[in-house]
């Protein structure tokens, strides 16, 4: 296996508050690493340091052999790290195609004047979604008409389409019903089979055990432990999430 991402000694201080004290871990290609932890454990801060929304106070992130620390969020995305936030960051009034291509729309020229290639992007989006096992009944309808699982699929399709090598997902099943949670879990499996590395943030134990190849438990800004799902159980993970109090 090849390592896609290595975070070493990450630390983030906000004023007097040290949100992340010392976090190191690696993600292999095609592997799903779950960052588990209670609220305030530092999960969100860690992923924001990886996606370059925050600059670490100390520590470095290497991705695909290059140093990412200090780069812009755009440069990080260009390098192949796609972050899917809880709110999905979709434009609800646009169709799946435009959402898939948002910020990177294709155009074609008529008499030298550029026109956004809406139909082409729509067809491409339907194809990519089909590859994920998701059929969209009306590809021209705005994404607000879609189900939670389908919307999640569009966010994931965006990552696949732009050839992300690492996808970060923040609580992807938090707002979904049970069948849609299963859909998302299936999507994660497909991403893995394409060799994409995944960092999944969750504090939902069934999700953690369903998706993870490795579980990294954060508590109070440090790595409290690292386990493979087969070597551990719910109880131990919860105990680690509660941190040093035990």
């Amino acid at each position: 296996m090849t390592t896609v991402l290595e975070a070493r000694g990450l630390k983030k201080r906000f004023g007097g508050n040290e949100a992340v004290k010392d976090v190191s871990f690696v993600v292999e290609a095609g592997e799903c690493v779950v960052l588990a932890g209670d609220n305030g454990a530092g999960k969100s801060t860690v992923i924001k340091m990886i996606s370059a929304v925050y600059t670490p106070t100390d520590g470095v992130v290497h991705f695909d052999g290059q140093l990412l620390t200090g780069q812009s969020p755009n440069a990080v995305r260009e390098a192949g790290i796609e972050t899917i936030y809880q709110d999905l960051a979709l434009a609800d009034n646009l169709d799946p195609g435009l959402n898939l291509y948002l910020g990177r729309e294709t155009t074609h020229r008529i008499l030298g004047i550029p026109f956004v290639a809406t139909t082409e992007m729509r067809e491409r989006a339907a194809e990519v979604l089909k590859g994920l096992g998701i059929a969209i009944p009306d590809p021209s309808a705005p994404v607000r008409d879609l189900s939670g699982g389908q919307r999640q699929a569009i966010a994931i399709a965006r990552a696949i389409h732009w050839q992300a090598k690492l996808v970060i997902m923040d609580e992807p099943t938090a707002a979904l019903g049970v069948p849609e949670q299963r859909e998302v879990m299936a999507l994660i499996e497909r991403l893995k089979s394409k060799g994409v590395g995944i960092i999944l943030i969750s504090h939902n134990l069934p999700d953690i055990f369903a998706a993870a190849d490795r579980i990294i438990v954060l508590a109070r800004g440090v790595v409290a432990g690292e386990r493979r799902p087969s070597e551990t159980n719910d109880e131990e993970i919860v105990r680690m999430m509660m941190g040093a109090t035990l």
């Binding site: 755009n74 995305r77 960051a89 009034n93 646009l94 004047i113 026109f115 956004v116």
Partner: peptide, 28 residues
Amino acid sequence: HYLLTHTRFGVHTYALGANRASVERAGV
């Protein structure tokens, strides 16, 4: 009309009205 319906500028304008985060995170 051209600007709003046929250009990337127009697409971003609609997206901005629906969800500012969507365009921001798309690097616009």
